[in-house]
Amino acid sequence: MASHEDLQPPFWDTRSGYGIQPPLTDQAVSEAERLLGVTLPEALLDLLRRQNGGQVSESRSAFPTTRPTSWSSDHVPFDSVMGIGHREQTLSLLDSPYLIEEWGLPADVVVLSGDGHCWIGLDYRTCGRQGQPSVAWFDADDESELALAPDFGSFLRGLTSTAEF
């Protein structure tokens, strides 16, 4: 069976080293799941095993929306993914508890990407902390949210270029 990488344009922007954590290990995954109290989606872990966070290629840097957000009338940005690790000056999935508290996000979320005002995260509120989370957009400024995809694999398949908008 072909992976999502075989079916779509390259995911990572290999010209940038920004946001990349050290190579992902099974121990780091176990630590992250223990700290966050969740089971991370296998599609996310597969992606992070290829490169542990960083900038997303232009061809995969947006997700279309069915309604307007504070960002745009028809899409949200997805320009980077947080990896798993402790590299200084680099946000990580491990920073989710702090970011949730700092920005007033729902407690059962793992933050994947964002800039402080708007975030994309794994939403465990419906499935439970060991289930398959949906992916949602969270706007901390206007306290709104928007479901984007039923799971991380579907989210990856829906990513497209910002140039399409």
Results as ranks from 00 to 15, higher is better:
A2P: 15
F155I: 01
F138N: 04
M1Y: 08
G83K: 05
E88I: 04
F11T: 07
L7K: 15
W119C: 00
M82T: 05
D141H: 14
D139G: 06
A140T: 12
P64A: 15
L7M: 14
L159F: 11
A147F: 05
G19S: 11
T25V: 07
W137M: 10
D115G: 08
D26C: 09
D115Q: 09
M82G: 00
I20P: 00
R49G: 05
F152P: 02
S30C: 12
V135A: 00
D26I: 06
S30M: 11
F138I: 09
P97V: 12
T65G: 03
N52A: 02
S154W: 00
R60V: 10
Q8D: 08
V109Y: 07
G17W: 07
D142H: 11
A163W: 05
D26T: 09
V76N: 01
A62M: 03
G53R: 09
T39S: 10
L146G: 01
A147G: 02
R125H: 09
F165A: 02
E143T: 11
F78Y: 06
P106T: 09
D13L: 11
P106R: 11
L48N: 06
D26N: 10
W119K: 10
I20M: 06
L48R: 03
D46Y: 08
G158I: 04
S30A: 15
L105E: 13
P77R: 01
D108C: 00
P23A: 12
Q130R: 13
R67D: 03
Y124P: 11
R67T: 08
G53A: 12
T90D: 02
R125Y: 12
S73T: 07
L91H: 13
A28G: 04
H86P: 00
D141Y: 13
L48M: 02
V56M: 03
P150L: 14
D108P: 01
S92K: 08
F78C: 10
C127P: 01
Q130M: 08
R87Y: 06
L36S: 07
G121R: 09
A43K: 04
P10S: 02
E42L: 08
C118D: 13
R50N: 05
S96H: 06
V109D: 02
G116S: 13
R87Q: 15
L156G: 01
S113C: 14
S161Y: 07
L93I: 08
S57F: 03
D79S: 14
S154T: 13
E31M: 11
V56D: 08
R50Y: 03
T39R: 14
S57V: 08
D6E: 15
P10W: 02
P23W: 12
G114C: 10
P68V: 04
G83C: 08
P97I: 14
A43N: 12
S154P: 01
G17F: 07
V76F: 02
D139V: 09
T66P: 00
G114Q: 10
S113W: 05
Q8K: 12
Q27R: 13
D115I: 05
A149V: 10
H86L: 08
P64C: 11
S113M: 06
G153C: 13
S144P: 01
L36E: 00
T160E: 11
T90N: 15
I84C: 00
V29H: 07
P97N: 05
L99H: 13
S30K: 14
